[in-house]
Amino acid sequence: MNTADLRIALFSGNYNYVRDGANQALNRLVGYLLRQGAQVRVYAPTVANPAFEPTGDLVGVRAVPIPTRSEYRFPLSISGKARRDLATFAPNVVHVSSPDPVAHQALTWARDRDLPVLASVHTRFETYLRYYNMAWLEPVMEAALRRFYRRCDALVAPSESMAQVLREQRMNYDVSIWSRGVDREIFHSGRRDLAWRRSHGIADHEIAIGFLGRLVMEKGLDVFADTLDELRERGIPYRVLVIGEGPARDWFEERVPGAAFVGFQQGADLGRAVASMDMLFNPSVTETFGNVTLEAMACGLPVVAAAATGSQSLVDDRVSGRLLPPGAIHQMAEAIRAYIEDPALRAAHGAAGEARSLEFSWDRINQAVADTYVRLLRQKARAPR
C-alpha cells in the first residue's frame, strides 16, 4: 500500500465557493495527491460563481446559505446523486474537514463499510461563540465536537499547539500534524513596493501596521481597533494597512479611521501588499494554524499575535515577534510601540521570522497526510473484524 493506491473521498463544508486558508490548503492537498497517482473525489456545496476553480472532481451536496453570513453555505445532506457517485467511486479512505451534517453522514457511511476516517481540524469552532455573546455555550459545542471527532480514526491538526488542545479536550488521542506551507515565489521581502504604498497614502517614513484576513469579527477586529486606540491616545504615530474583505468591513472602517483598505488581494499582488507592511498584527484566537502569520514571516515582517493555537507554533516570542495574552490591549500596544520606535528591533525580528518560514515545504507537509491515510488503512487491515 502506497500513495498511488489511495482512493480518497474528501468532504468539505467550503471547498472553493469562498476563498480562505482552509480550503486553499485542501485544494493544495488534492493537487499533490493527484500528482502522486492517488484518486480523489471531493463532496462539498457548490455555487454558480465560486471564488476559484476546484482542484480535482467536485460533486455537490445539499446546502443552504447560513443566516447572517449568506456567503457561506451550510451542508445539509448527501443527495441521492452524490450517494450514487460515492458508491461508484468506492473510496478506501474518507476524509472529513468540517463537523457539519454532511460530514456526520459521511462518517456513518464509512463506518458501516469499515473504512478508515481521517478528520482535519481547520478552525476552533467553539471559540466563535465568544464573538456573538454566546460564550456560555462553549462547553455544549465542545461536547458536540468531541462526539464527532472521537468517532473518527484519527485527526490531523495544523500545529502542535492545536494538536495539544485537541488532546486536552479529549477530542481524539490519535492526532498528528498537517502543517501549512508558504509559496516562496509569492511571499518574500523582495516584494516590498514603496511606490505601491505611496499610491495608498502611506509615506516611505511611516510605519504601517498590517491586518491580513477576512473582515469578520471572529478575527479579533475589536481587539485590533482597541489596541490602535491606545496607541493614538499615547500620541504614537502609525498607519494601518488592511488586506481583505468581509461583512464587517464597514464596522472596521469606522473603527480604524484613516486606514488604507486595499481589499482582497491574491497571487503576486498579495505578496506585494504583505511585504509592504512593516509588521503584522494578528489578534485572532480562532485559527488553528495562522497562514497569514507564516506569510508575513516569509516577507521578513515581525508579528504581534495573540498567544493562541497556531501562532504559538510559529512565532518565537522576543525573537521573531511577540506572543501576548488574548485581548491584552495594553501589552499589544506596547509591543507595537517598540517596533514602531526601534527599526533595528523590527529588522532583527523580521529576519528571524523569514528564516523560520523556510522550514515549511508544501510537498513535505502534504505527504504527511498521505502517509496518515496509508497508516490508517494498514491499521484497519490488521484489526480484527
Rank of each mutant, 00 (worst) to 15 (best):
A9W: 00
A9D: 08
S12D: 11
S12G: 08
G13N: 08
N16C: 14
Y17R: 03
G21Q: 03
N23E: 07
R28S: 14
R28W: 00
V30T: 14
G31R: 04
Y32K: 11
L34W: 03
A48V: 05
P50N: 02
E53M: 11
L58Y: 02
R62A: 15
V64K: 09
V64Y: 00
S70G: 11
P75I: 09
S77R: 09
R84Q: 14
T88R: 15
F89N: 10
Q105V: 00
W109G: 03
L115G: 10
P116K: 11
V121C: 05
H122W: 12
R130T: 10
W136Q: 11
E142R: 14
C152V: 05
A154V: 07
L155W: 08
V156W: 00
P158T: 05
E160L: 12
Q169I: 00
R170N: 13
V182Q: 04
I186G: 03
R191E: 12
G201W: 04
A203R: 15
I207H: 11
I207F: 15
R214G: 13
L215W: 01
T227I: 08
L228R: 07
D229F: 00
L231C: 04
I236V: 14
I236P: 00
R239M: 06
V242F: 01
I243F: 05
R249K: 15
R249C: 10
P257A: 11
A260T: 06
A260D: 01
V262L: 09
F264V: 04
D269Q: 15
A273M: 09
V285D: 01
E287D: 15
T293I: 15
A298N: 03
L301V: 06
A307N: 13
S311Y: 06
S313D: 03
D316W: 05
D317C: 07
L324C: 02
G327F: 06
I329R: 03
E334V: 05
E334K: 02
R337C: 11
Y339Q: 04
I340A: 09
I340Q: 05
R356I: 09
S361C: 13
S361R: 12
R364M: 08
K380G: 09
P384Y: 06
